[in-house]
Design a protein around this nucleic acid. Structure first.
Lengths: 183, 183
DNA sequence: TTTGAATATGTCAAAAGTGACATAGGTCAA
DNA sequence: TTGACCTATGTCACTTTTGACATATTCAAA
């Protein structure tokens, strides 16, 4: 999966591992988390496999960077993945729900503390999403074309999903906290 | 994580790998997916580590089963995990959102087909959740006590989260389909 | 001037997850 | 009685993910 995210971004324009890491933190990390260690190793592997090519950039006044460019093979791989529709539901992993499921075995006050902390974190995340502009993902020199607006339509749809998800979590936590408090 | 789910279930009463697998499919799989291969290997590993003990059951008229029982060490491990509150947000991985994010590069009709298929799957899942009774997780011979009702309160909270999540997905897909259709 | 934050890139061992392959008995209906 | 499906348990090679450790530069503030 990470492979396709990296291909997807590099299909727009060449980028370094750090660029990709920050791009992901501002966008896809909300629905696909990856450590920078994984991104760098994945890029190396993808270059070995011929999906990417790389070039060292030595600008003065900035550290050495390795910039990756998608190859035709990489582009074909991305297209093949996008063209094969997903016919199952995505697999979910949510540690907080696991904890909630087994919370009957726990001290009530302790459970409430945790739920409140989670609520706070979801509020913060929602605030970030609400202040977020997907246009920031674009490099400043790129002019707005209908194609890019079309891309951004989908970026904004995923952002919208993120906001709704955070609201759902907050509402669920509010109700759960109230229900646990009232015995 | 899987380890704690298995400990959580085995803390109720001893079970076989298959029992755990089916229990998970009916409950925690909605927020934590695991293959049976992973469950069986995890159980072996946990026995090695002293968290579980096992015993072969040879009932006539049924295949050989291995039943696992939680040990005191396992119980302590579970308690320690439950007692340490989660102070970050759970990490999300959602392949469908990754696909949506990069859907600007795809054929419109193709995207709509995929979104419609996803919508159908989420409707099915919601119907399953709405017909689901958490009490079915309990073995028939167990009487209903206040303790078990307390456990079930949390089980039902996670089911409620699941229903809301499915409705969110359906609503989001409906709106996204409409928006993509109307250019 | 030094300290800390941000930029930038990596390695690595270990753990977790994937999904195909394999086996075998029981039940039930066509 | 044959085939399909469910129960029940596993192996295994491979990929992915985790999270700690490591390093070096730049820039701004204290």
């Amino acid at each position: 999966m990470l492979k396709y995210i990296l291909l997807g971004f590099l299909n727009y324009y060449p980028m370094t591992g750090y660029d990709l890491k920050t791009r992901m933190e501002d966008s896809t990390a909300h629905f696909w988390h990856a450590y920078h260690s994984q991104i760098y190793t994945a890029l190396r592997k993808m270059e070995e496999d011929g999906l990417l090519s790389s070039e060292m950039l030595d600008e003065e006044g900035s550290p050495t960077k390795r910039e990756y460019t998608i190859t035709d093979v990489g582009r074909a791989k991305l297209k093949a993945w996008l063209d094969k529709s997903m016919m199952e539901l995505p697999r979910v992993k949510n540690e907080m729900m696991v904890r909630a499921f087994f919370s009957g075995q726990r001290d009530k006050e302790h459970v409430i503390d945790e739920l409140r902390a989670q609520r706070q974190l979801h509020l913060q995340k929602l605030a970030i999403y609400e202040g977020y502009e997907m246009a920031h993902l674009l490099p400043p020199e790129i002019p707005m074309t209908p194609e890019i607006e079309h891309e951004m339509f989908f970026w904004n749809r995923t952002l919208d999903f993120g906001k709704r998800y955070e609201r759902l979590c907050i509402d669920w936590l509010d109700e759960t906290i109230t229900a646990v408090e009232s015995h």
